Structure formats: C-alpha cells, structure tokens
Computed example of a mutant assay.
Amino acid sequence: MMKGTAVTGAGTDTVLSLRGICKRFGAVAALTDIELDVAAGEVVAIVGDNGAGKSTLVKVLSGVYAPDAGKIFLHGEEESLGSPALAHARGIATVFQDLALCENLDVKANLFLGQEIRPWLLDDVAMEKRSWELLRQLSAKIPSLSVPVAALSGGQRQTVAIARSLLSNPKIILLDEPTAALGVAQTAEVLNLVERLKQNGLGVVMISHNMEDVRAVADRVAVLRLGRNNGVYDVEDVSSEEIIAAITGATDNAVSRRAARRVTSPQEEREEL
C-alpha cells in the first residue's frame, strides 16, 4: 500500500478522488486523464456510450486493473489498489453486473459466502442476526433468509448482492448497471436501495445507461466519452438533453469541464481558464 501526500482541490468530506487516471491495453487507450471526486453521502453516476471506458474505470477502482498512470486518493491519502482484496480492505466494495450469486444456495449462505462466521463450527445464529441487520439497514423486502436465491426476483437478488457488499462496512460502493434488465417495480426497489446507501453516508459510484435512473438518485453525473472526461454536472442543474449531448460528443469538452461542480483550488481554476 502506497501512502502519499493529501490530495488538493477536494472537499473535506471527499472519500474518493481520481487524478489523471490512464489505462491502456496495447495500442488502445481505454482511459485517459480521468478526474473524479466522490463525497460521503453522495451518488455519482458514470454515463457514456459503449466503449466509453465505464467498465474499465470500475475495474481500476475495484483493484482488478492497475492504472498505467495517475493517482487514486482515499480520504485524501494516495493509495495503490493493487488487487481486489486490497481495494476491499481499503473500504471499496463492488457489485458487478453479474452479481456473482450462487442460485442454489439460500440468502444467508450467499451473504456470507467466503466470509462465514466460524469460531470453530459455522455460527448460524450470529450469521442470521447479522443478515437481518444488513437487510433492515437497506429496508430490504426479502421474505426469508432460507429461500434459495433462484426463487428471488431480479430486484431481490440485487438486494442480496448489495447487502453482501456491506458486510465489511465499506465507505465507497461501486454499482455496475444495478437496474439492467429489471422491470419497473424491481427498478424502483433497487433505486430505493441506492437512496438508503446514500442516507447511510456511503459514497456511491453508479454505472448506468438509464437516464431516468440517473436523474432519480444521482447527485452528480460524470460523462465519459472515448475514455476521457466529457463533463461532470449537477443533476439538478442539467437537462437530459445536455447529458446526451456530452455522451455523443456534441458538447465541447472544455465547456463541460467548466460546468463541472468539482471543487478546485484557485491555481487549478486559473489553469482551467
């Protein structure tokens, strides 16, 4: 783990900051000079067209990929997230789109898969108590801990995956397309979960293609285009049309940067202008 100087230009409640993140795969530049800040109790949506770099960015943040350049700051301190285990230990939890659930196992077994409480033998009582604590924390609608995951709806499965990610008390949670392929009622259920994460003080990064979902729960939306920043906007101050323009490249990148709400130092402001 690499420690460094505190990041400048970020608020005191900032839990995650990216500065100049780059990632290449051979001749392909997947990410170039990515900048992002996420505060505690804030939902930042990452949007962009296919191939914009959204999934690559999530994998960099979750420790799956190491960036080729740039710096990652957690709580103002520079960190090197060399593996998923290290990212997890530093308080970053990730719920990927495939959820990684075992459908033949029940809810409790999936919540504690690989993290079982066992002083000697499995402590079913402690795991059941902790399971209900997590589900109540999310105001989740799960009928029973003993029901197989295969019998749950898509929204309930997403609930189980998110609840499992909270076992380690993370400060940042990454959600990769949490409402993909869900119906209206199930989508509403998952968006309520995202609101609960925000209310509990977590910094949330949500990858999404759905503009309605973004506007429903996000505080800010960061647009990626061809692996680069193309604007960070306050959701309350931007229209869906403006976001789509940034996604498609109709909006100039320099104008988008000046519209961003990222807190900058006076020196950074002068350089940007």
Rank of each mutant, 00 (worst) to 15 (best):
T56M: 15
S239A: 12
V47A: 11
E236T: 10
V47M: 13
K129M: 08
L74W: 10
S139Y: 06
V64L: 07
S83M: 01
L138K: 06
A85P: 07
V107W: 03
P266M: 07
A181L: 09
A218S: 13
S83Q: 07
M2E: 12
T32Q: 15
R164N: 11
G91E: 03
K108M: 14
L224F: 12
S17Q: 06
S62C: 01
E35I: 00
G249D: 14
S265T: 09
E189M: 12
A89Y: 02
A188Y: 02
V232A: 06
K108W: 11
A27T: 15
M206K: 04
L36V: 07
L61V: 05
I46L: 15
A216D: 03
A93N: 04
R130N: 10
P143S: 10
A89V: 10
P266S: 08
A100S: 14
A163D: 04
K198C: 13
L61K: 04
H75K: 15
A87Y: 05
L145Q: 08
I72P: 01
I162K: 09
E35L: 13
N210G: 09
K108E: 06
P84S: 06
G70V: 07
G4C: 11
V184D: 07
L202Q: 02
Q97F: 06
A151Q: 15
T5G: 13
E268W: 04
E128Q: 14
P148V: 02
V125W: 06
R157A: 02
E195F: 05
A40V: 04
C22W: 15
K23R: 12
L197T: 08
N253G: 11
G227V: 02
E103H: 14
Q97M: 05
E189S: 12
P170H: 05
L202N: 03
F25C: 10
V194G: 01
R196N: 11
C102S: 07
L99C: 01
S131C: 08
A260I: 10
G183Y: 05
V232R: 15
P148N: 12
T56S: 05
E42R: 00
A45F: 03
W120G: 11
Q115P: 10
Q186P: 08
T251F: 04
V47P: 05
A89C: 13
L31Q: 13
E77Y: 05
L145C: 04
V7T: 08
R90Q: 14
A29F: 13
L191T: 07
G9F: 01
Y233A: 03
S165W: 08
L197R: 01
G203M: 04
V205F: 11
E236Q: 13
L61P: 02
L135D: 09
R220G: 08
D49C: 07
D219F: 00
A260E: 13
A161Q: 02
F112I: 04
